[in-house]
Amino acid sequence: MSNDRDNNADASMLRRGVLGLSAAGALGSVAGAGLGLLAPRAAMAQEATPSRLQTVLERGHLIVGTGSTNPPWHFEDETGTLVGMDIDMARLLAKGLFDDPEKVEFVLQGPDARIPSLVTEKVDIVCQFMTVTPGRAQQADFTVPYYREGVGVMMMADGDYKTFDDLKAAGSNLTLSALQNVFIEDWAHKELPEARVDQFESPDAALQALNARRVDGYFGDQSAIRWLMQQAPGRYVDSGRGWLPNSYASAVKQGDPTWLNWVNTVYREAMLGVDFDSFAASYQKWFGITLETPKVGFPSEFA
């Protein structure tokens, strides 16, 4: 499981505590906001602030917040170059801005810095496998999602179990390995209620448990499973079932519709329009998924 999810749970627990306290304060701030709308000076200040789109164009390069330790999203390849799906999305933006995918400055940060770095304007945008949640959407503006993450099970290609039905039929005889995390057992049990889950401290130990056939399957993020299968073709098989969907999107600072809309336009057209080829190439490279060319000749809503 990515740190992302860890963070999620953490954040939502914290939020739960805060909500109760802030409910009383909410009424007061609504009243305050009402008064603010009436004041003409606030409206003028808003107009005077140029969109980040302008700022970035004038600066001549894009500043992107991301990480460097999570393949296939953002990580360093053998040559030490930052690569991954998130990095490709950032380069797509740079290409749209300057016609040069290299004009990006990456700011490496931990998952917990994703929203703070936007709020403090250290970065123009965050491309860091960010799960869209209603709570986070109160603090940052999400773009359209570019991946739907979920969990799944990967088995050895020459192992005893070939399909998800085999796993299900195995009942309590089934042992899965996973990265130690809160709720991980509940997540596995959602689809495989009787499976035993051996939790390891690091993802590589969890994977090695499968390699050594100590366990029947590796339980983890779909993207990680696809990436691992890409790395060792023919060695593993995907059970073919994914659950617990959650969307990955980029995020920008709140209150700048022009910038958000521009990024959304680039992302949408990457998935459905002019940049489809490069987007499809990224999907193929990082997840081994061949995307079908969007149906031509209709408004995208009909495709």
Binding site: Q180, V182, I184, D198, Q199, F200, E201, A205, A209, R214
Partner: peptide, 21 residues
Amino acid sequence: AAAIAVPELTFTARQVNANTF
């Protein structure tokens, strides 16, 4: 033994950590 998911004392403590913070 916690490193290979044997549910002894260290593993259990870590498990409780992960589940309850």
